[in-house]
Design a binder for these strands. Structure first.
Lengths: 238, 238
DNA sequence: TTTTGTCTTGCGGGATCCCGCATATTTTGC
DNA sequence: GCAAAATATGCGGGATCCCGCAAGACAAAA
């Protein structure tokens, strides 16, 4: 049994290495990669079926790496290992998990025990393990109230990329007006309407304010934007 | 001699602790805080004159903490210790350093040696130490070309917060037209004008696109936005 | 079938944004 | 001290954005 660790922080990498050795005595080979790209290469070369993946790496982030790994071998078991539980990450991961794949999502702040448990559960038992806190985010984002629907989220991303209504309409194959409707929903859900009781109307440019709020609520993060940007440039070429 | 470590990642914290003990034998007391708030409290309580500070903590980020520490005791020596060298961080630090204060800025990826050297240089020799790479960013941002001037940067922040031209004009005590002029400069420097040779005009909403580009270039980051947002809310109350 | 609800699209208009052009005002270099 | 350059301001207009109103499409509930 072989395990691939993809993590750009040296300290965390060695800690993980340690944890893997301790939790999985049946594992006889641990390989490492310090960024998303080499992670993909290593996974391909070694045909790894077990991967521990950091999200948020500077070179190429974990979600993109995981996406290509899963595209090549959808039965790969991946344990995501992240600092934060931003809604953007949770959404990003959920979006790329293949049908029936087993994966886990644990935070770096969890105890040794939990990490080791997660390692065994995911890699040996083929069981999905999602950290309590992460689950919480998942619930909240889906759970109505202020949670964004997928449609709204997509619009949000396009807006955050800096596209005009017209451009979005074209990309999403909608009328201009529909796009604007979705924008209004978005504005309401994000509470963009003069939340600062103070002052008066017209203080905020709703469009940009929505992005700011989404960022501060961690519904979006720069990581997600990078991915979206790449997808956009990709799509423009065709 | 006492050293305060402010760092929210347990692994890095203990690594730092270790490094401090090794590099500074004359240091007889190391105290720790795992977020910006308790960092401020500890600093006040222990009257620390030597602080190692992580930027980018979830609770309250390092720049805010450093700002209040320096406000209370401007002669405190602070060594910043960060994962990345985003222009936003570099600018943020430069903005709050008091006249004649000694500080350092090293990346987490630097070697043991360099870290220890930096610790001694800053705390013992009272010498400023800025990582090579960080210097690079500093140069680039100041060195005209595509670098933003302070005025432009401020406008950028306000835009990113979601303010309207009118609101910005008021805050900055400028005419509406002047604000729009600065925006145009900003758009040019950020290359917002259909950088995607493809397609045609009118694909981008310049205002939002500028924010997206600034984020992807790390001229801005969510951390800087958080700070700005707080300042904004502060200013609105008065 | 009718009703109710959600979603899409069109029209219209007021506010805002982007920006060219022209005129002050300030800063800079010599 | 003066010319040159940068910056600030005003005016005007075309494009875009935000959104109320209303009509059609489609699906689930009654």
């Amino acid at each position: 049994m072989r395990v691939l660790i993809v993590e750009d922080d040296a300290l965390h990498r060695s800690y993980l290495h340690e944890a893997v050795r301790a939790a999985l005595p049946e594992c006889d080979d641990v390989i490492e990669a310090d960024n998303g790209f080499s992670g993909e290469v290593q996974a391909r070369k070694a045909r790894s079926e077990h991967v521990v993946m950091d999200l948020q790496m500077s070179e190429r982030n974990g979600i993109e790496a995981a996406r290509t790994i899963w595209r090549e071998r959808p039965d790969t078991k991946i344990l995501f290992w992240s600092n934060y539980s931003d809604e953007a990450y949770v959404r990003g991961v959920a979006r790329i998990v293949p049908e029936g794949a087993t994966y886990g999502y644990v935070l770096k702040s969890t105890s040794d025990e939990r990490l080791k448990l997660a390692l065994r559960s995911v890699f040996i038992e083929s069981q999905c393990v999602i950290d309590r806190e992460v689950r919480g985010i998942q619930q909240k984002s889906l759970g109505n109230a202020h949670g964004l629907s997928d449609a709204e989220y997509e619009i949000l991303v396009d807006v955050a990329l800096g596209l005009t209504d017209k451009a979005i309409a074209q990309r999403k194959k909608l009328s201009l007006r529909s796009v604007q409707n979705r924008l209004q929903q978005l504005y309401e859900k994000l509470d963009v309407y003069h939340p600062t009781g103070q002052g008066g109307e017209g203080w905020y440019n709703l469009r940009t304010r929505a992005v700011a709020v989404a960022l501060s609520r961690k519904v979006l993060n720069s990581n997600a934007l990078e991915r979206a940007e790449r997808d956009l440039q990709e799509g423009l070429k065709s």
